[in-house]
Computed example of a mutant assay.
Amino acid sequence: MSDAAVSPAVNEDEAALATPFVKCLVRLIRALAFCSWEGKSDAELLGDFIITRKQRRAIPIIGDPDPDVLWRLDMFYTAVGLAIEERSGLMTSPMMEMKTHGGFGRLLFTVGQLSFCPDVHRFGFDKFRQLAEAGTKLVDDATAATEAYRDVARA
């Protein structure tokens, strides 16, 4: 395989890994597991967040999430809360409500951002770019809501 064929995907991954949201997620993971993942690259740390379509199809449509999936979900939305906090200067934390039977979940951030998670047991992204885009969109939307309703957010 030539370098030209690999280069666009590698560059796309590097760009995604350099986004502020993904950097926040990596910092969070490294902070919580400081010794066990020492020496691993950011891509290796986030590898469990990548679930290809083929892998997703192999998971039953209805099912209960295993502890690893719940951990990834928690890390992702905690990183969203931290990124919102970094940008807005307001303390933010996710509040999760999980209906584990059937794999449905709902998350609410204290700044008023609501996110639904169907198929929680299949939580993951096809590519690092999608991980970065999803997290960045949640942070952007919550930050915009915080700016639009600054007095409510500060209450």
Score class of each variant (00 low, 15 high):
Ala145Asn: 05
Ala5Met: 09
Asp68Ile: 10
Ala132Cys: 14
Ala15Leu: 12
Asp13Ser: 14
Asp66Tyr: 10
Ala16His: 05
Glu12Leu: 07
Gln55Asn: 03
Gly102Leu: 10
Gly89Val: 05
Lys137Ala: 12
Gly135Cys: 05
His121Ala: 03
Met95Tyr: 11
Pro94Phe: 06
Ser88Gly: 02
Arg150Cys: 10
Gly124Ile: 04
Phe104Ser: 02
Asp151Trp: 02
Phe116Asn: 13
Arg56Leu: 00
Lys99Tyr: 01
Ile59Trp: 00
Leu73Val: 10
Val10Thr: 09
Ala15Val: 08
Val6Trp: 13
Gly102Phe: 15
Ile84Val: 15
Pro60Trp: 04
Gln55Asp: 08
Leu17Cys: 13
Thr136Gly: 03
Phe76Cys: 09
Met75Glu: 05
Ser2Cys: 12
Thr92Tyr: 00
Met95Asn: 08
Ala31Tyr: 09
Ser93Thr: 05
Phe34Pro: 07
Thr146Met: 07
Thr136Phe: 01
Asp66Leu: 13
Pro118Asp: 13
Gln113Ala: 01
Arg57Asp: 00
Thr143Tyr: 12
Arg30Gly: 05
Ile62Thr: 09
Ala33Trp: 11
Ala148Thr: 04
Gln55Ile: 04
Arg106Phe: 07
Ser41Pro: 07
Leu107Arg: 00
Leu45Asp: 12
Asp140Met: 00
Ala155Ile: 14
Asp48Lys: 14
Phe76His: 10
Asn11Asp: 12
Ile61Ser: 15
Leu107Ser: 01
Glu14Asp: 14
Ile50Met: 12
Pro60His: 03
Ser88His: 06
Glu133Trp: 10
Glu14Pro: 03
Arg30His: 04
Leu28His: 15
Ile29Gln: 13
Pro67Val: 09
Phe49Trp: 01
His101Met: 06
Leu32Ile: 08
Leu46Pro: 08
Ala83Thr: 06
Thr100Asp: 01
Val111Leu: 06
Asp141Phe: 03
Ala142Glu: 10
Phe116Tyr: 13
Asp64Gly: 07
Arg150Val: 12
Phe21Met: 11
Thr92Ala: 04
